[in-house]
């Protein structure tokens, strides 16, 4: 019997996890998409009622599809909130002793168990979320196109992200930020399997506060005009440092990949050593 990873056992475990948690997971996705449908209907109806029948503003609706902009904002909010919430559900089977014992005693390696949960709650969530959002948005666009056949500026919510290179780079940076945050919630889930979302959220607020104070102090100490703490080489480098947007996007992507990977690996090792009691 392979000790670390067996594809055949992984497939069986994946099937088990999908069947066991499918109802709960689909219910959560239904809640998210239900909210988007409500939002979409509300925004469309609101525009229609307020502007379409008023001569002075009728063209404003046609030429400025605010609905798509609002939907785009909510896409990002939903992605961050839903993704982080989904990540906090990753260690749900070991949330208490009663659930942890059957889960931990299942004859599969810790790597297989972690990989199945990671795939379900990170990539599969993202794919389902984006697919669902695109379908709802497409329905909105189709509805608006039918009800307002003369409108020329009805667009998909996600289309501005592909307008030009700069918006694409911004979108990539947004996705990187999302993965970085989500990976922290994966790590949080392995540390606190129970009430993970709230605990990680509070933990991040505290950590953020500490880091802000520390780095502000450091920046003040380094860059205070009266204090000559900045080494000459750094000053020269900063003077000549003129990065392009592409360079910055590449750097952000690289940093976020490394950061997320470290968090996933730490979460795996924490999960591997998990017990049926919480030591801290």
């Amino acid at each position: 019997m392979k000790t670390d990873f067996s594809l055949e056992r992984f497939n069986r475990l994946f099937r088990l996890e999908m069947k066991r948690d499918s109802r709960t997971n689909l219910m959560w996705l239904a809640v998210i998409f239900g909210l988007f449908i409500l939002l979409s209907v509300q925004l469309t109806a609101f525009r229609d009622y307020n502007y379409a029948d008023k001569n002075s503003e009728v063209y404003s609706w046609y030429f400025n599809d605010y609905t798509a902009d609002v939907m785009l904002v909510f896409f990002w909010i939903g992605l961050f909130l839903g993704g982080c919430f989904s990540a906090s559900m990753m260690m749900h089977p070991i949330r208490d002793k009663e659930s942890a014992i059957p889960s931990m005693m299942l004859p599969a390696s810790q790597l297989e168990k972690f990989a199945v949960r990671w795939i379900t709650y990170v990539p599969i969530f993202i794919v389902l979320y984006i697919t669902g959002f695109v379908i709802i948005d497409a329905l909105r666009v189709a509805y608006c196109t039918v009800t307002h056949p003369t409108a020329i500026n009805i667009r998909f919510a996600l289309s501005p992200m592909f307008n030009d290179k700069s918006t694409m780079l911004a979108a990539i940076c947004g996705i990187c930020a999302f993965f970085s945050y989500q990976s922290l919630f994966v790590l949080g889930s392995s540390i606190w399997p129970k009430k993970s979302f709230i605990k990680t959220f509070l933990g991040l607020i505290v950590l953020n506060g500490i880091c802000s104070i520390y780095f502000s102090g450091l920046a003040l100490a380094l860059f205070e005009p009266n204090m000559n703490y900045v080494p000459l080489w750094l000053e020269n480098w900063l003077e000549h440092f003129n990065p392009t947007r592409t360079m910055m996007a590449c750097a952000v992507t690289a940093v976020s990949i490394i950061f997320s990977s470290i968090n996933y690996v730490l979460a795996y090792y924490r999960y591997r050593e998990s017990e049926i009691i919480q030591r801290w």
């Binding site: 019997m1 392979k2 000790t3 067996s6 056992r9 066991r20 208490d96 002793k97 009663e98 659930s99 014992i101 059957p102 931990m104 005693m105 299942l106 004859p107 599969a108 390696s109 810790q110 297989e112």
Partner: peptide
């Protein structure tokens, strides 16, 4: 070490447990 082969040889019925 919780090796899969060992886990396949041991079954525990705890006093309280959750089933799907």
């Amino acid at each position: 070490l919780r090796m899969p082969s060992t886990l396949a040889d041991i079954f525990i019925v705890p006093e309280e447990f959750n089933l799907p």
